[in-house]
């Protein structure tokens, strides 16, 4: 405690510091961390993060979250399929979920929309919806699991992302496919390449055999049944194949980036 306080005094904007810390943790949480500091400090040694680097619970938690990204990537089995269900198991009505109300969901003109392709690919041409609809499609009935804990079973039909990545000549050794979306505030999310190449990861054009409705991401969503819901971007407008970690809407706010199921 004494050491912490001495760190706070000179040349540091305390209010800023406090506001920073409370973003992820309220005061109560900070106090609780300090109380349990010794053993959690020991945990940081296991993860190999430098405690002296920044003595704050928030940065320590973020280091462990990165460590958890690595653990999840290591246990990710590219051949393990998410369980599938009969059509009778589909959740009706399937919930709409976003950080805004349905009325504020993007309204996209399917005739104007194009999927922009960037980064480490041979062919960077943009794709119209009509062109994408001509690609072979498969259907999956899988469970969508939200980071909040609830789940719902839905039916999604579209083109396996790995087929599309092959068509455009994507470098499959690149680390991420980074998606940008049309949502207000610009939703985006990185998808690790191993998951992008998973057989069930899909460029989705239909929900329940109907053209993807606005609520579920018209004209295209990326369905990833091996990830939590927020890693399934809707209203996708561009895809970049990249080795850079470009962050994501929720990932930047503290949700674990890998968030595999």
């Amino acid at each position: 405690m004494g050491r912490l306080r001495s760190l706070l005094i000179p040349g540091v904007d305390k209010q800023l510091l406090v506001r920073d810390a409370t973003r992820v943790m309220p005061d109560l949480a900070r106090r609780r961390f300090i109380a349990g500091g010794a053993s959690l400090g020991a945990l940081t040694l296991l993860t190999g993060c430098d405690v002296t680097d920044s003595f704050s619970a928030e940065s320590m938690l973020k280091q462990i979250s990165k460590f958890n990204d690595g653990v999840q990537a290591a246990i990710f089995n590219p051949n393990a399929l998410a369980p599938t269900f009969p059509e009778s198991a589909i959740t009706k009505p399937f919930p709409f979920n976003a950080y805004y109300a349905l009325d504020d969901a993007p309204t996209i003109d399917g005739k104007e929309w194009k999927l922009e392709v960037r980064g480490l690919v041979d062919n960077k041409k943009s794709w119209t919806l009509e062109e994408l609809y001509k690609l072979p499609q498969v259907k999956q009935v899988t469970r969508h699991i939200c980071v909040e804990g609830w789940s719902a079973i839905g039916s999604w039909t579209g083109t396996p992302l790995r087929d599309f990545l092959k068509i455009i000549g994507a470098d499959s050794r690149a680390r991420y496919c980074w998606f940008q979306c049309a949502d207000a505030e610009g939703y985006n999310s990185p998808l690790d390449m191993a998951t992008a190449l998973h057989p069930q990861t899909q460029m989705t054009f239909k929900f329940g055999d109907e053209i993807l409705p606005r609520a579920y991401g018209f004209p295209m969503k990326i369905r990833v049944p091996t990830k939590l819901g927020f890693k399934n971007p809707k209203y996708v407008v561009s895809m970049e194949v990249t080795n850079d970690y470009k962050g994501g809407f929720w990932e930047d706010q503290g949700y674990n980036s890998f968030s595999g199921s």
Binding site: R23, V24, P26, L28, K62, S65, W250, Q253, N256
Partner: peptide
């Protein structure tokens, strides 16, 4: 009640939960 929870919001709580799980498990 928020007064007896840890993390402040879902994201913060998940960070705590998936950090402390290692301690609990090991």
């Amino acid at each position: 009640s928020k007064s007896i929870t840890l993390g402040g919001w879902l994201g913060g709580a998940l960070l705590w939960h998936f950090a402390a799980m290692w301690l609990l498990m090991v």
